[in-house]
Design a protein around this nucleic acid. Sequence first.
RNA 1: GCCCCCGUCGUCUAGCGGCCCAGGACGCCGCCCUCUCAAGGCGGUAACGGCGGUUCAAAUCCGCUCGGGGGUACCA
Length: 549
Amino acid sequence: MSDAVPDLATTGAAAAATTERGTATTPDGPLRLRFCPAPSGWLHVGSVRAALYNWLVARRSGGTFVFRIEDTDAERATLDSARSMTEALAWMGLDWDEGPVLAADGTLGSRGAHGPYLQSERAALYAAVGRRLVDAGHLYPDLRTPAELEAWREQHRSGTAGGGPPVVKRSTAAHSEEELARYAEEGRVASWRLATPEAGSITVVDLVRGPVTFEWAHVSDPVLLRSDGSATYPLANVVDDVAMGIDLVCRGEDLLSVTPRQILLADLLVADGLIDAALAEVGLPPRDAAWGPPRAWAHLPMVVGMDRKKLSKRHGSVAIQEFRRQGFLPETLRNHLALLGWSHPAGEERFDDADLTARFALEDVGRSAAAFDVEKLTTFNGERIRALNPAELADRLLPHLDGTEGEAALVGRPPSDAELAVVRGLVPLVQERMQRLDEVEAYAAPFLGDVGYDEAAVAKHLATDAGRAALDAAAAALDGCTWDEGALEAALRAAAEGLGVGFGKLAQPVRVAVTGTTVSPPLFGTLVLIGRERTLARLDAARTLAAGG
RNA sequence: GCCCCCGUCGUCUAGCGGCCCAGGACGCCGCCCUCUCAAGGCGGUAACGGCGGUUCAAAUCCGCUCGGGGGUACCA
């Protein structure tokens, strides 16, 4: 790399005029969009919503959805996280045309013609681009240490340096002869910054926010190459967006202020075929000849918790796999997340993917931060569970019964025929009273295992004179009764009448006797599914319990 | 400190100068149904942050103010 400090006129600063970029409406034609999380931690609802919006626009335009892992920070990025995010995105049903693919054995493969899609595998490209940017004079060396920089910024922030915002510009980074000599002696290695214009302004016409103007004088020159030679996010992100032909950048509002320098860089990369030369040099696939730099931007409002604070561990279910574990359907999440910032033109709130892709538009996305409401999600989820056909519900319930999603292993994996029959028989009993799939565990226990008697329930409904009388009457009525809902209902109602009590007075003791708790699906269906043998046995056991023995 | 964004029921939102003493959804409350829990049906509660303008007329336009958020990293 050349250490020569290039003339200002040869750098991006030459573009110091006032410029405007972006579009007021989504561009026509097939669009390439991407979702590019940094792999540290889990995917949370905010990220997934961004992924969803990108996916929707790509699908609606008949374009391409690219998934890229931005693991340029070796300190924080982990492969486990990358795997987890890949799995989460797949579970959400946001299928991508290009990007990493998680194989059954846990390794990350790849699909698409413009990879690799893990930035850690593209280091050579960033180095090649960096070298060319330096040679072209767009980057300049900064020999200050992080500590020195921080001290410098602190001075400016507190105003003790005599005013001026803490903005790093080439003019503030110039080193004197003495400094250079000293640094050389110390063996310091430079980091390289992108020279942004010192004056003028740029207006980003954002699809959700409209025009937003930034003064270049307020834009700090970002470090593109760390002193160890590695690429930073400001470099890698833009290089890949350009190399992968991203048309529309849709991401969180937290990246809005970084857009000006990204536009500048993207232009530099495309100009004179710099990116193409670098791609060829390192042997990566060439860009499509028609691709230019990104031409549209959309910055989504943040997603906050119900306490209006930024999403964090405190908010519980932030990791998307937590929703999976709790039995939320991915289609519910898609529906509900779409509503977090966007609203259907016709005011509809329940819709499927087809309606969503047909109607969704970034221009209709709101501008204020939205709180994620789990209550509403839960209601929506219950509605969708009710709308499922019974056979499919049974299939979706299995992972919550065999230990895949929860702790309980009420059935084998795979389930036996008998277990499967019970689960299928259970569906009509629980479908209309479930909001989450994981609730099936509690409902299913009495049908698939032994009853555990709830003490309070026993005390209230069994161990009383009325309870004992009810159990005796029920046992007598059920003995020899035909085992179908109609006959059971007739027999038990008659028994209640015989006791001279309302049906409820008989039903609750029986319910507790058979299921162990006061809450269960409707009694007659429950008895049918549990079967004569077990019902009568449990009634007997309950009578013993009720007698205090 | 500096830059940028945002501000309608508890929550998600509709509203883009008169149709709004503000509509829908979730929640909440009440009633109906009912063998428990649900589901379902019906009804109800609840908001334009504040102050100044502009206008015959403002939730809608403008200014200020207050409040919230983001950025200000050799994190992304």
